Simulated scan of single mutants.
Amino acid sequence: METQEKFLSFNLGVTDTAVISLRHIAEVLQVSLPEICGVPQMPSSVLGIYNWRGEMLWLVDLEAMLGYPPISPGSNLVSKMMAIILENKGKYLGLLVRQIIDIEWLDAKEMKATNTELFYPKISPFLEGYFINDSEEIIFNLDATTIIQSSAWGIHN
């Protein structure tokens, strides 16, 4: 049985790497922060709404959501960010990340089960598991469906 799957890898924070399965990714695009309309009364990780293909797309600061320091819109470094558009059953959500690394093949059989002691409490609910790469580094495998269905924005989409 074929257990290889394609994943999009990207940076989380300064040192970490995460992946999301390509089957949940509708598109990856560059977003400039001034084009995002902020929405009051939302969690700080929700940056606001973005016009995507004529639709209103919620954009989330993935790092802030997972317990990393938030993207600070003031810094020029991040005036342009990459948005990973997730799709699940007709619902879309944009995750803003600093940098996309690559598309890679990973073997689902090599994925390790999450251990809540290992990870920040904020990241654990969104993990499908993790991989260990050749350099012995942990690569978080984020669960796109759980992220899209998160109660933080579920009421809004």
Score class of each variant (00 low, 15 high):
118 L>N: 12
55 E>S: 14
115 N>D: 09
124 S>M: 08
95 L>Q: 02
62 L>G: 01
80 K>L: 09
53 R>N: 13
42 M>E: 03
127 L>P: 01
63 E>A: 04
41 Q>Y: 02
116 T>W: 03
47 L>V: 13
87 E>D: 10
99 Q>L: 03
121 P>H: 14
73 P>Y: 03
67 G>A: 10
46 V>A: 13
39 V>M: 06
48 G>Y: 12
127 L>A: 06
114 T>P: 00
42 M>R: 11
51 N>I: 07
131 F>E: 10
71 I>G: 04
94 G>N: 12
60 V>D: 11
136 E>Q: 15
71 I>L: 13
68 Y>D: 02
90 G>Y: 09
94 G>D: 10
42 M>V: 08
66 L>A: 09
72 S>M: 09
114 T>R: 00
124 S>Q: 05
136 E>H: 13
101 I>S: 13
65 M>T: 05
108 A>F: 04
134 D>I: 01
50 Y>P: 05
79 S>K: 14
72 S>Y: 11
85 I>H: 11
126 F>C: 04
107 D>C: 07
75 S>N: 10
139 I>N: 02
85 I>A: 04
89 K>V: 02
134 D>L: 09
86 L>E: 08
95 L>A: 10
54 G>P: 05
136 E>N: 15
77 L>Q: 08
43 P>L: 10
69 P>M: 00
45 S>P: 02
92 Y>Q: 11
117 E>W: 04
102 D>I: 06
135 S>R: 14
87 E>K: 09
58 W>Y: 15
51 N>Y: 05
54 G>W: 13
85 I>V: 15
60 V>Y: 15
84 I>R: 12
72 S>G: 04
135 S>F: 07
103 I>W: 07
92 Y>V: 07
137 E>L: 10
113 A>M: 03
98 R>F: 02
46 V>G: 02
77 L>G: 01
130 Y>G: 00
133 N>R: 11
119 F>N: 06
76 N>E: 10
65 M>V: 01
134 D>T: 05
42 M>K: 04
72 S>F: 07
61 D>C: 12
78 V>W: 12
60 V>W: 15
75 S>Y: 06
125 P>Y: 11
76 N>L: 08
133 N>H: 09
63 E>F: 00
39 V>E: 01
88 N>Y: 15
101 I>F: 06
118 L>R: 15
63 E>C: 03
138 I>S: 06
104 E>A: 10
94 G>W: 13
96 L>M: 13
74 G>Q: 03
84 I>M: 08
69 P>L: 02
82 M>W: 13
41 Q>F: 07
102 D>Q: 11
101 I>W: 10
99 Q>V: 02
117 E>T: 02
91 K>L: 11
71 I>N: 02
109 K>L: 12
129 G>W: 00
130 Y>E: 06
53 R>P: 03
137 E>H: 15
126 F>W: 10
126 F>M: 10
